[in-house]
Structures are given as C-alpha cells and as structure tokens.
Write a protein that binds this DNA or RNA. Sequence first.
DNA 1: GCGCTTGCATGAATCGTTTCAGTGACGCAA
DNA 2: TTGCGTCACTGAAACGATTCATGCAAGCGC
Lengths: 341, 341
Amino acid sequence: MARMVGIKDVARQAGVSVGTVSNVINRPDLVSEQTRARVQAAIDLLGFVRSESARQLRAGRSRIVAMLVLDMANPFFVQVARGAEREARAAGLGVMLCNSAQDPSEEAEYLSLFAEQRVRGVLVTPADPTGANLAAFRRREIPFVLVDRSAPVGECCSVSVDDVAGGHLAADHLLDKGHTALTYVSGPMHLAQCRDRRTGALAALKDRELPEDALTHIEVPRLDVDAGREAGARLLALSRRPTAVFCANDLLAFGVLQALYAAGIAVPEDVALVGYDDIEFAAAAAVPLTSVRQPAVEMGRTAATLLLEETGDDADAHIHQRVVLQPELVARESTGHPSRP
Amino acid sequence: MARMVGIKDVARQAGVSVGTVSNVINRPDLVSEQTRARVQAAIDLLGFVRSESARQLRAGRSRIVAMLVLDMANPFFVQVARGAEREARAAGLGVMLCNSAQDPSEEAEYLSLFAEQRVRGVLVTPADPTGANLAAFRRREIPFVLVDRSAPVGECCSVSVDDVAGGHLAADHLLDKGHTALTYVSGPMHLAQCRDRRTGALAALKDRELPEDALTHIEVPRLDVDAGREAGARLLALSRRPTAVFCANDLLAFGVLQALYAAGIAVPEDVALVGYDDIEFAAAAAVPLTSVRQPAVEMGRTAATLLLEETGDDADAHIHQRVVLQPELVARESTGHPSRP
DNA sequence: GCGCTTGCATGAATCGTTTCAGTGACGCAA
DNA sequence: TTGCGTCACTGAAACGATTCATGCAAGCGC
C-alpha cells in the first residue's frame, strides 16, 4: 500500500505551511480566500484524507460513541440503536454498534475495547447482573448512559420505560376483555424488566380486587422465540389452560403463538395474547399481536442526547438525569378485535 | 476529566523506561520475569489503558473492520453481521457495524468516516446502484469485500448466495405441490437479487415446459413488510387470484400473509406462500413460512475471512475471490404441510 | 513617521505509542 | 586480559494531526 498522503504533502503541494492546511480544514474563516482555494485544490489533487487517529491523539478522545446492546436479534434494540445513531450522527459523531448477546464476558471485552479507543461515551444496556463490569468501567472515567435500565439517581444518566405501568396496561387490557385470570410468561426474574412488568400486572389485578393468584407465572431462561415455544408447551400442559396470556416480550409471544397454533388453539378465540415491545413483526404476524409499545427510537434518541450533553463543552454543568418514558398499549387482533370484544 | 495515565507514567512508577513498558505489553518474552511483574503492578495500580489512537497512528491503520449493511431492520443482515463479527473478533479485531438504510448518501458519509478512521477494511452491501461510492472508495486503497453481491472477477472479493438457484428452488417447490401458475412478488428490479430470483423461477417453469407467462410479477418499491402489504392488496385485486406466491424476501412475505389473512384467505389452503432469507421470524409466524434459507452467518463469516486474508501479513499473496454459496429450501406450513401435500 | 491594530501565515511543540539502534553487564572462550 | 556474544534495558525518533506564540505586512489615525 502506497504511503498515505498527509497534511505535509498537501502543504508542500500548495506551497504553504502545515498549520495553514490545518486551518483550511478546521477553521476556514482564518484563511484568505485565495490560499484556501489553493490548499483545497491540493487536497483534491492528492486525495488527502485526514487521519482520525492523529487527530484524536491530539484531542485526547475520539469522535465515536459506542453502543452496546443486549441482543441485536431483537428488533426492539435495533430500533433503539437507530434512534441513538440518528442523534449522534446529527452531532457529527460516529456510532459503533456492538452486541453483548447477554454475555457478561463479551460485555467486559467490549468495554475494554471502548476504553482503548477512548470513545466519547457509551450507551449501554448492561448484561452483567452483578454490575461489576460497569463498576470497572466507571473507574476509567468514560461517560456512559444506561439504556432500558434505570440508574440510582445521581450515579449516571439513564433512560428507561416505565415497566410497571406497561405491565399494568397489558393486564388492564386483558381484564377489560372480560378475562379474570391471567398467565404471565417471562424471562429470568433477575431482570428488572421481567420483575417490574409482573408488578404492574399484579397491581392491575389488585385494582379490581382480584386475588394475587389470579396471575399464573411461567418463567423461561431467555427472552427469545425458542424460549417462547417452550413456555407455550408448558402453558398447554397446565391443568386449567388460561384464557389470557401476557408475555414479557414479543419474541416470547411469537413462540407462544406458534405453540398454540400448532396445538390447534385459536388466538384470540380460545386464548388472548399480549406481547411487549411492539416490534415491527408484531403487527405483521398472521394474527397481529396486541403489544405494549415502548418508545424505542425515542429512548435511543434521548440516551444519545444525554450522552452528548454529558460529553459536550459545558460538561461540567451536567447533572445526571433519570428519564422514564411511558409505554402505550397497541390493541390488535390477538386479544380480540376492538369491534367484537 | 483527569489526565489519562500514559505509558510514561507507568514507566516512572515502575522505575523503567517507556520502551520496556511497551515491551511488557506487546512482547513480554523480551522482558525479564522480575521487571515484567513490576511493570504489570504499576499498570494495575495506575489503571493504565493504552491508547488505540497513538497505537494506530504509529501502525498506520486501525484494528477495526467496518461493516455497512443495507437494512438493520432486516434480521437477515443482522445474522450476516453476527457471522462477520464472530470471525473478526476471533482475530482480535473490533467491528464497527453501520446501517446505510439503502441510502446512497448515507453510504457515502459512512465510507468517508471509515477512510478517516483508517479502518482495516470494510464489509459492504452496496446501496448505491451507480457504483460511484465504491469507485471513490477504491481510490483510497482501503480493502473491501462485497457482501450479498457478486463482483466482477478480480476487482475485489465478494461473497454472495446463488439467487438464481434460490429462485429455482422456490418455484420448484411450489410446482411440486401441484401449482401450475405462480406470482412473484419482488422489490425494485434494479436490485440483482430481485432479478436473479425471478430468473431462477422462470428456469424452473421452463424445465417443466410451462409458458413464461405462468409467472405473474408484482413489483413494489421496497423490501419491507409495508411493501408486502401493498403487494398483498394488489394480489387480491387481480382478476384471477394466484394459488402460489413467491416473495423476494421474508418481510414481503409477512406483509402478503397479513393482507391475505385480513381478507379471510387461508394459507396454505387457498394460497401457498414462499419467502426468502429464512429469518428467525419465518419459523415463528403463526403460519410458519416456507422460505429459501440463505447461509447468512456463513456469508458473514466468509466475508470476514476474506477480508482478514486480504489485510493480513501475507496480503501480497492475496488474490480476489468470488465466493458463491448455495441456498436451501426450508419447507414449512405456508406451502402445505409435508405430510398432507 | 510612529505606534497600533488587524489579518494571514508560519513552524515548533505536543499528544502516547512503537520501534530500533545503542549501552552496559555478564559469562565464556581464547 | 581481551574479545565476543547474549540478554535486559534505555532513550530518542518517528507517526500525522492541532494549536499557539510569533512574525510580518498592510492599513489606519495622529
């Protein structure tokens, strides 16, 4: 590979000093019209591309924000990423999107990588339930924002969605449809998500003075379609099959839906089904899925905004915020068409 | 933010020279056991993290490969990315995943970003039909591998899947089921993908001496679920409704499926449906979707391998390759259950 | 004509690594 | 003792940009 052309080559070609070339690139207003044109011509002629590494070596930090999500196979996170990306790029920053796949050791590796890269900041949905990875990361003094997790006030910024409210919405909807007992299908209960959504559902039952045991609980080890199928199988094996099922995310709901279908059980006629996240495929399923919509894009956008604020020029003025967004129920056919409740 | 601790601070703390610290990190075998321990202790004590930017400034290139995909909302590309990522990380490289969202200008911006970053190489599914972006990129002498596109031999590496064969498989399957006329639902025909899959389907018809007009064609402007719904509506409006539909990707098929369902038309009883890509949700739909599986993970893996080869130490020995993988039909219920054809 | 400001351009210092030619120290053979 | 090779370490020169104190010239008011 031929030697990269540097700012020096441009300077020589244009007959000016390196400082001037730098000014043409970064503060063109300091340079006379004439010189600027000459330098620009040299740049174009030589095909000069400035080296980010040299730039950031001098600046002390890069112009990249990293984003580490739990599961890229889940369209929900892709949406979040899209929101964050749009915001960051509007501010002239690049985004490095990575997938921890819920594996704490992957997460740790990525966080080291980010530290070495001196990224501007990190948007992260933590995978490590112990918090050890983040604690180690905090010591490096790299700003980060928790996404889809809420942080203790003051420790760092966080953007999340009110999962208790979401669980409440879902349960309310099913109860409105006339069901008096629900089954909650969740991932591992060490995830705050799964816990909070259940809490919300219980609250909804309580509001109507229904007993707590009107909520059956099926817990599976992951939050994907496969696990949903497993949950569906266990659901079918119950002595009294429930008529209303609330899943902790849409992927689980898909799995359940499929298991029910395979057993010849009609949705919504025999069983009403509610998912969570309202991913694109929820609407696109053959039986469109009622789901609790999380403002995913907005969550990403907000997280990026907070990070930019924290790492901006007036960073000292920054105080950590804990943003909680509200979910919203999207009723579709999997819980009975609105017109025939 | 406190000043970053550098290799110099470590050297001072350990009472050795900077060169020695560097050796401890990069070539520990050159350093005596004792010194190594002392330096390591200093590193841990000070929480030293080496600066990638300085490192790559010296090295002339970074340890990051970029990946630019067409549509991150399509799980197929997420799979490809996963394959590439695994391979790259195994080789100690970071992956920067970006989404051009099929927008040539986004693509151009990202390619500039990559050039400035001096990335090791780029895996790209081009969005720009004119090829201008890539041509500009080639001048920068940054290696790249085409993904899900085949390149003219010798120009660069490429990994793709045989789309003609895929189309043939899909059509064959439907014809095997007894259908004698097919409808092909595709995205824009300027995409080689869409063209080739049609070509394959036509070949299948020809093999059975069916006329070319046994293949109706519905073209929609994008390859997503919405576009699929539109195609479904147009399909329903046809004077003679087809009994067999082949979609250029699973997202389109989902849209069609939904439109059919909404119109009370049963799949597979009234209409048989085949998708393409075999994304995870294909199996998870309430009517599991027959689909042409592309070896997505393997494609990503192979692309990354080729790139590593091209950018490795023996790069001079590298000759551009054009890898074509074979697709595979996965029969599910949307074309009639195997047991009751 | 003198001192001032203003506008432009200069070039050296700097960022944090890696690398490489040198420097000692030590052991061993002649 | 000298010469030589090895081993462990040193210190300075890159890498390619940004920044800043500095210089120079022209313009202006007095």
